[in-house]
């Protein structure tokens, strides 16, 4: 538990127009952890990730990455700092090839120089992508698309990788594979923040978890604690 802090979200409030959707949310992620935010549809999980990656602004609130305030930075600055967001629904460039999608993940700085090397690493992780490197991304299956979305994120050589619903719409066997990959990514040194509705599987790989309800954090603890928590059990695990 003595790991240094990587990301700290301090008391953020986020609005869509006049509608407040996030209310004073605070949490942190330490280096090398897998931390998850769980909650029902509409609880504000994706909104929090979008705020961290600069698509939305907290008003007010602070987000600190290492020792730097990042809540006013443009998205393209954040990727240079090593923050990568794998968005909900993959959001691939569907009319570009697999390889071009990977190129798009490594536009900046050092990741640009290591592009070919990173590609080999991604292809090693997902051999199926190597076979389909010249295929148009829109023609891939759902599982392959999710692999490509993760691979595209890895191309940036992230220090913090944020996943928004990586298991959405995938067959159970693929869900398992994706969670294995996320575990592997962490083991190789990338910190992970994950947002999921697939609560059971997510908690079982998470070091710590936060439960989000109606834009507020209502519970926090280790993954194991949460799996045993009475409220989590009735509200999310259906037992």
């Amino acid at each position: 538990m003595g790991r240094p802090q990587l990301l700290e979200v301090r008391d953020i409030n986020v609005f869509y127009g006049d509608l407040q959707v996030i209310w004073g949310v605070s949490f942190n992620v330490r280096q090398g952890e897998i931390v998850c935010l769980i909650g029902a549809n509409g609880a504000g999980k994706s909104t929090i990730l979008k705020t961290i990656s600069g698509l939305l602004r907290p008003t007010p609130g602070e987000i600190v990455f290492e020792d730097e305030r990042i809540d006013q930075l443009r998205p393209y600055k954040l990727i240079e700092l090593g923050i990568v967001h794998v968005p909900e629904g993959r959001r691939l460039f569907t009319e570009m090839t697999v390889e071009e999608n990977l190129d798009m993940g490594s536009l900046k700085g050092e990741s640009r120089q290591r592009r070919e090397q990173s590609k080999d690493m991604v292809f090693e992780l997902f051999p199926r992508l190597r076979e389909r490197r010249r295929q148009i991304a829109g023609t891939l299956s759902g599982g392959e698309q999710q692999m490509l979305a993760i691979g595209r994120g890895l191309m940036a050589r992230p220090r913090l990788m944020m996943f928004d619903e990586p298991s959405l719409g995938l067959a159970p066997i693929l869900v398992k594979e994706i969670f294995n990959v996320i575990n592997r990514i962490r083991d190789e040194g990338t910190t992970v923040l994950i947002v999921e509705q697939n609560v059971k599987q997510t908690l079982s790989i998470s070091d710590r978890a936060y439960v989000l309800e109606n834009g507020r954090i209502v519970l926090e603890g280790t993954g194991q604690e949460m799996l045993g928590n009475a409220h989590v059990k009735t509200a999310y695990l259906g037992v």
Binding site: I79, P87, R91, T94, E100, M104
Partner: peptide, 19 residues
């Protein structure tokens, strides 16, 4: 490629670091 990416998915392009 960034121009094409921006045309295909603006938000995803922003997340990839496209200005």
């Amino acid at each position: 490629k960034s121009i094409r990416a921006t045309a295909q998915d603006l938000e995803a392009a922003m997340l990839m670091g496209v200005n």
